[in-house]
Measured scan of single mutants.
Amino acid sequence: ELSWTAEAEKMLGKVPFFVRKKVRKNTDNYAREIGEPVVTADVFRKAKEHLG
């Protein structure tokens, strides 16, 4: 699991709890794919757009 900024964690907190774990995993995987060592708010937004 990658490191997350406080802002990205806050955004994740707005995701319904029953899918939060999956969203975190998918976002981590997306960040790795694009070469990001940390999940930022920008990476979170891009993952959301990319993953739907």
Rank of each mutant, 00 (worst) to 15 (best):
E1S: 12
E1W: 13
L2P: 08
L2H: 04
S3E: 13
S3W: 11
S3P: 15
W4G: 01
W4H: 01
W4P: 00
T5D: 07
T5L: 03
T5E: 05
T5V: 03
T5R: 02
A6K: 11
E7R: 07
E7T: 06
E7G: 06
A8W: 01
A8V: 02
A8N: 01
A8Q: 00
A8P: 01
E9G: 04
K10R: 14
K10I: 12
K10E: 14
K10G: 09
M11P: 00
M11Y: 05
M11V: 04
L12Q: 01
L12F: 04
L12S: 01
L12D: 00
G13P: 05
G13M: 15
G13C: 13
G13F: 14
K14A: 09
V15E: 10
V15Q: 05
V15C: 09
V15N: 03
P16A: 06
P16W: 08
P16E: 04
F17T: 08
F17R: 10
F17D: 07
F17W: 15
F17K: 10
F18E: 11
F18D: 09
F18R: 13
F18M: 10
F18H: 13
F18Y: 13
F18S: 11
V19W: 15
V19N: 13
V19R: 13
R20G: 02
R20I: 04
R20D: 01
K21I: 12
K21L: 14
K22D: 09
K22G: 07
K22M: 14
V23K: 02
V23H: 05
V23D: 02
V23I: 09
V23E: 03
V23N: 03
R24H: 04
R24Y: 03
R24W: 04
K25M: 14
K25R: 14
K25G: 07
N26V: 13
N26R: 13
T27Q: 01
T27Y: 08
T27N: 02
D28P: 00
D28A: 07
D28C: 05
N29G: 08
N29L: 12
N29S: 11
N29R: 12
N29P: 01
N29D: 13
N29M: 13
A31Q: 00
A31E: 00
A31F: 01
R32Y: 06
R32E: 04
E33T: 10
I34G: 04
I34D: 03
G35E: 05
G35N: 08
G35K: 06
E36G: 03
E36D: 04
P37Q: 12
P37K: 12
P37W: 12
V38L: 09
V38F: 07
V39I: 09
V39N: 00
V39L: 02
T40L: 01
T40C: 03
T40I: 01
T40P: 01
T40W: 01
T40Q: 02
A41T: 06
A41S: 07
A41N: 04
A41K: 07
D42K: 07
D42C: 07
D42T: 08
D42H: 07
V43Q: 02
V43I: 12
V43C: 03
F44R: 01
R45N: 09
K46W: 09
K46I: 05
K46G: 07
A47I: 05
A47L: 05
A47C: 06
K48D: 06
K48N: 15
K48W: 15
E49Y: 12
H50T: 08
H50R: 10
H50Y: 13
H50A: 13
L51I: 10
L51M: 14
L51G: 10
L51S: 09
L51P: 06
L51Y: 15
L51A: 10
G52K: 14
G52N: 14
G52T: 13
G52Y: 10
